[in-house]
Amino acid sequence: MTIPAFGLGTFRLQDDVVIHSVKTALELGYRTIDTAQIYENEAAVGQAITESGVARGDLFVTTKIWIENLSAEKLIPSLEESLAKLRTHYVDLTLIHWPSPEGAVSVKESMLALMAAKEAGLTRQIGISNFPIALMQEAIDAVGAENIATNQIELHPFLQNRQVVEFAQKNDLHITSYMTLAYGDALKDQVINAIAQKHKATPAQVVLAWAMTLGYAVIPSSTKRENLASNMAAVDLQLDDQDMANIAALDRQQRLVSPEGLAPNWD
């Protein structure tokens, strides 16, 4: 199982905005698109993909199951609805978006339902998102680490989530970073800007390259063509050991996403 290192996120983008973003990204050469049921943009993403003319087999499409659909009886029907909106017979990756609040639906039940969806050909790979160590272990116990393609977590220079990453790596679990630019805060950091000047790169390219150098996948979003193109160039940016060490020193456990009533017990 492999997760593309670089893709397009669509969080908070809807209607014509997300259609424009996805179509522009595909024109520029993006081939990985990340969406979710709760984003309420799957239909628009599906429209953009269809109108782009890019062959479905050339794309890697991810969606995520919302907490209301995590039970065994709801997960597959909700995924089938997502596929209809996306205008595709399958997605490449389906994630549990957030663990069920207060364990209302067990991790085991959701993971087994995801496995059933995979076996039915609705999704090529399955995974998790926003899972701390204890719940990662429950997911592994349910279906085996070899069946979990990634854990998509908030991870940026100011929240490097080292405990979760270390546990994931020990269990051969891949990490996908979301909020990699820290809502843009990372682009203002002096250390990151100094590295950007050194490499004649943008601060965004530096941060994205940092995450990919560590082996994480990244899914930055943008509505602007120039930013979409610039972000994509991060794939080719080579940071040196000193650059990586300087960014490693920026960690300050600054979590930006922790919705009340939804967030698990973070590590």
Rank of each mutant, 00 (worst) to 15 (best):
I195H: 06
G103L: 04
A201N: 13
V107N: 02
A104I: 07
W98E: 02
I3M: 08
S21K: 07
K85D: 02
N161A: 12
L83N: 11
N41L: 07
V206F: 13
I96E: 00
I65G: 01
L237N: 06
A196Y: 06
A145D: 04
D240I: 04
D172R: 08
T63A: 02
L159M: 06
S100G: 05
G7F: 03
D58W: 04
L181W: 04
I128T: 10
G9H: 06
H199A: 02
L79Q: 11
A182Q: 12
K64T: 05
T32E: 07
V143Y: 01
V235W: 04
Y216W: 07
L79P: 09
K118Q: 14
K188V: 02
P4M: 06
T63L: 01
A229R: 14
A204R: 08
L70E: 01
W266V: 12
P259N: 11
A245H: 08
L214Y: 12
W98C: 01
H199M: 04
N231R: 10
R124F: 04
A5M: 13
G261D: 10
Q37P: 13
R162C: 00
K64W: 11
A196N: 14
G121Y: 10
K64E: 01
F11E: 05
I140V: 13
A149M: 11
E40A: 11
